[in-house]
Design a protein around this nucleic acid. Sequence first.
DNA 1: GGGGGACTTAAGGCCGGGTTAAGGGCCGGG
DNA 2: CCCGGCCCTTAACCCGGCCTTAAGTCCCCC
Lengths: 232, 232
Amino acid sequence: MRAVARLLLIEDDPAIRIPLVRALHERGHAVAAEHTAMRGLQACLDQRPDLVVLDLGLPDIDGLELLKMLRAVTSIPIIIATARDGDSEVVKGLDAGGDDYVVKPFTAAQLDARIRAVLRRAGPGPQAPEVIVVGDLRVDQAARQATLDGSALDLTPREFDLLLFLAARAGQVVSKRDILTEVWQVPYGGADKTVDVHLSWLRRKLGETASEPLYLHTVRGVGVRLSPPDRR
Amino acid sequence: MRAVARLLLIEDDPAIRIPLVRALHERGHAVAAEHTAMRGLQACLDQRPDLVVLDLGLPDIDGLELLKMLRAVTSIPIIIATARDGDSEVVKGLDAGGDDYVVKPFTAAQLDARIRAVLRRAGPGPQAPEVIVVGDLRVDQAARQATLDGSALDLTPREFDLLLFLAARAGQVVSKRDILTEVWQVPYGGADKTVDVHLSWLRRKLGETASEPLYLHTVRGVGVRLSPPDRR
DNA sequence: GGGGGACTTAAGGCCGGGTTAAGGGCCGGG
DNA sequence: CCCGGCCCTTAACCCGGCCTTAAGTCCCCC
């Protein structure tokens, strides 16, 4: 787990927000705070926090709507912290994608414990081993280095990120939209030709072309898949 | 996610246990129940449930101790459901390894929502490859790849969609009307000849013809059925 | 024997993806 | 502070394959 978790608190009431930021900070978290849904959404995309604490009663957009918007683009852990204590509210909040739901008033100690519980479960997430091996391709995450048949590949940062993303999902088809949002960190953009260009360069460095693929198989209409070459 | 989650409820009070088992079962879970910590531990090791709902006030061993014992050997999601509502109790429960903490009395709806939230986050364990197998034919949904006798089939997007649609309904006759609306996504079109053409190409790639079918059996006047070849 | 549904093959248009080249921005070094 | 290089983006063009439409033939069933 990360030494210090980066939290984002989205809460409009200063009487709650300010002391809560202080309390969470004292408990060893790095805390950012926003007071509207739109600013919270923006901060979420910019900062990529480890966890979001979300109030439902926001001035501009209802928190449930914001939650659904966030869930459309990210799987960041989200804890709902709100005054709405109705049973159906809790169910709706959790089903909309919330990881936990605490009702005001709550103590900082309990919120902190719930934060730690959620982070513990979400943390390792998609088990990211140090080095991913696909066929004769090795991708070393920590060293940010990839080798093919034992010889190092000279990759640019984006190329490595792209290769790492694909290697972590080896055997599965990945859409270019997913690549764009996850690797390029853009919420939604039409210009996915950039991905094509980088794929092309990656292919060249892998010693293959789109028409004679070894590792990067394009699945027309869907995306690309990284899988070991057919030995025949 | 699994079609149906296998839950284990550890709760000594029959006045709570019995209706709760019933309520969770009605909500689509497979529920087992134990009334002591030791039996719960044993059941946990034997059955390997997908999630445990744990009461803290058990007759033989305190629930917190049981939680720590479980955490020493497994990472199964555990939701604590108890009457102890003290703040420090919640913190201790979560820090001991609980994934969530609900205080009695709670509704079955809320517990169910929390169960779903925790399961969603704990996710499909290692991996859940969605592969459909019919005879020597394998259809891998995530990889969008089909293999026959172990060798990969080179299918076009529509061909794969068609094969997947049929494989998901293996053994059943599917009308071309259904294929047209589901695979081609057209509300209603008379030109279902396109389906015939694709079926023909699919047959060729499967190494069969309509007169010598292996997997794709046409049912005249009704539609087509995908089923394993007769071994002779 | 006739009719109709089904299968196959052929041809053409269209769209998605690949590759290359040029331009601009950022960063490090001189 | 300036310069140079690397890297990313954008744009343009090309290419190939896939889907559709059309037409012909077969075969089953009436």
